[in-house]
């Protein structure tokens, strides 16, 4: 009896200690590569080794002075912007159709739209590279073009936008939409002037998520870009294969900063919308 009591008293204490230890472990695990990269980017030496003896912003200057790296960053941002526009527009329209219209073979179409999300990047990249490798439009080869990478990235970004917007459209009060119809607005005008403002937070979030996915992706981009259009992650991968320098750490930090800026934008927008709602 006392034995059982002791066990019952002992177990929660042990579990609590275990839980705390696990918490430390998981936070350390997640933060280690982030902090190592951040610290290394301020290293003065040209070798990657610990301990770090001198600090400087040398490698940041080096990054921005190198046309190869700034061009890659520019390419990344252009492709990510294109992906965001393409996947947001197509994803929102598809989600709207699913929410408000009768669709034949709804389940099949749903699966079809979602399926690319589950496919490995290497398979998607390879398929597109093989199929469109030799195709030319008006004498210009589409292989290696940024547009092709945008479409490839949309295969992952669009299903996510679609999923997010389907959930968002479900929260819309459709009596307002009916009222707009009753007042004589056509469906297009109703959609743009009534529905889109109501779901603006969802739209902004999905566009920025699409942007982030494209910005970080590098396996498809590796298959589909050439020297002139390669993105920052592709350049990082290729130079990691030859030799790692603190410049790579700088590139990582800049890539991450771009992503976190997007996240901050979502947050600011969200807070603004909340304020607007509370003011009304």
């Amino acid at each position: 009896m006392s034995d059982a009591l002791a066990r019952r008293g002992f177990e929660p204490v042990m579990l609590k200690a275990l839980g705390a230890a696990f918490m430390v472990f998981i936070i350390a695990y997640i933060l280690i590569p982030v902090l190592v990269t951040l610290v290394m980017s301020f290293n003065d030496a040209s070798m990657i080794r610990f301990p770090i003896n001198a600090w400087s912003l040398k490698w940041y200057q080096d990054f921005f002075a190198s046309p190869q790296w700034t061009d890659a960053l520019k390419s990344s941002v252009i492709i990510a912007t294109g992906t965001a526009i393409l996947s947001t527009v197509s994803g929102i329209l598809a989600a709207w159709a699913f929410e408000r219209f009768p669709i034949p073979f709804k389940n099949v179409l749903y699966l079809l739209i979602m399926l690319p999300l589950f496919m490995p990047g290497v398979v998607l990249g390879l398929g597109i590279a093989m199929t469109f490798g030799g195709v030319q439009i008006a004498g210009v080869s589409i292989y290696g073009s940024r547009a092709l990478v945008m479409i490839a990235h949309s295969l992952w970004a669009m299903p996510l936008v679609f999923m997010l917007m389907e959930a968002t459209f479900r929260t819309v009060d459709y009596r307002v939409v009916e009222a707009s119809y009753d007042l004589g607005a056509n469906p297009l005008r109703t959609f743009i002037e009534i529905v889109v403002p109501m779901v603006s937070t969802g739209v902004i979030s999905s566009a920025l998520f699409a942007f982030v996915i494209s910005l970080n992706e590098f396996v498809m981009a590796l298959f589909l870009t050439d020297r002139d259009t390669q993105t920052l992650p592709v350049l990082m991968w290729l130079s990691l294969r030859s030799a790692g320098t603190p410049r790579l750490a700088v590139a990582s930090v800049i890539l991450a900063l771009t992503v976190f800026a997007c996240l901050a934008l979502i947050l600011v927008w969200y807070v603004r919308q909340l304020r607007k709602v509370s003011r009304n």
Partner: peptide, 9 residues
């Protein structure tokens, strides 16, 4: 939110 390549590095 971090690119796989940055994680690898």
């Amino acid at each position: 939110l971090i690119s796989e390549i940055a994680i690898i590095f």
